[in-house]
Amino acid sequence: MAAYRSRSARAKGFSLSGPSTPLPELVRGLWDARDLLALLSRKEFFVRYRRASFGVLWAVVLPLLQAIVLAVVVNRFVRFDTGGNFTLFVFAGTLAWSFFSQTISGGTTSIVDNADMSAKIYVPRALFPLVVVGAGLYGLLISTLILIAFVIGAGELEPVRLLLIVPAIAVLVVLSTAAALLLSALHVYFRDMKYLVAAALLPWFYLTPVFYPLDRIGSLHGVVEANPVTGAVELLRAATIGADHGWAVALWWTAGWTVALFALAAVVHRRHDRNMSDLL
C-alpha cells in the first residue's frame, strides 16, 4: 500500500460553515476536476452511440439531414435572397441552433439527473452542465467539419472569412455554457424549469434566423435581434457565406446576454452549490 502514498493533484480536504461557497473556491474545484470533466464528457458522447450499428456516424448524418430537409421545405414556400447557397445558409443556422438547444435542454436537467452521484460525493455541481457542454462539443466538432467541407464543395471558400469560424464557435459555446449553468441550478429548485425550457425552445427556434435572413423578419426584427442566439448564428454565417445586414447589433446583444447569464449563474451556484443535494 505504501507505494500508493503519492496522492493526486486534486485539492484535498475542506472546511464548511454556512451555506455559500466562495466563488474562487468553486472555480478552483472545477479546475481541479478538469480531468474528470474531460473523461465524463467523452464517455457521455460515446455511450450515446454505443449500441447503434452505425455508431458515431449518426452524429454526422443527423445534423446534415436536418439542414437539408429544412432547406428543401422552406425553399418550396419562400425564396429568400441569401446571396449564396441556401442549403449552406440553413446549415450554418441549424448547426448553431442544434448545439444551443441540445445544450440547454440537456444542461437544465443535468444536476438533477446526476442526483445519485451528487448525494454521495462532492464535486462542484456546475460540473454536470459542463459535462453536457463537453459531450456536445464532439458533435459540434463533427458538424463544423462537415460545414467546412460543404463550404469548400459549394465553391464558397474564402480562407480569411472562414477563419471567423473560430470566434463563431467560441461565442456559441460560451453562450450555451452560461445558459446551461444557470438553468441547471434553477431546475434543482424549480422543477418546472425543464418544461419551461421545452416550451420556450419551439417559439425560440422561429425567432432565431435559422432559415431566414435577419433583415427579412419585419416587425419582429427587434425581438430577433435581441435574441442571444442570433449573434452566434450570424457570426457563424459570416464565416461561411457572409452575414446578413445588421448582424453586428445582434452580436452585441449576445455578448450582453452571455455576461448577464454568467453573472446570474455565478450568484446561484455560489449561494446554493453545497446545498443542492438537500433537494435532490
Binding site: 484535498k12 475542506f14 464548511l16 460525493i121 462532492y122 453545497r274 446545498n275
Partner: peptide
C-alpha cells in the same frame, strides 16, 4: 462527505474523502 453544508457550526475534513 462534503455533499452538503452545515446550517450552523463548522465541519473540517483534512484530506481526500472516499465514500
Amino acid at each position: 462527505a462534503g455533499v452538503t453544508a452545515p446550517t450552523e457550526g463548522t465541519v473540517t475534513v483534512c484530506g481526500q474523502v472516499a465514500p
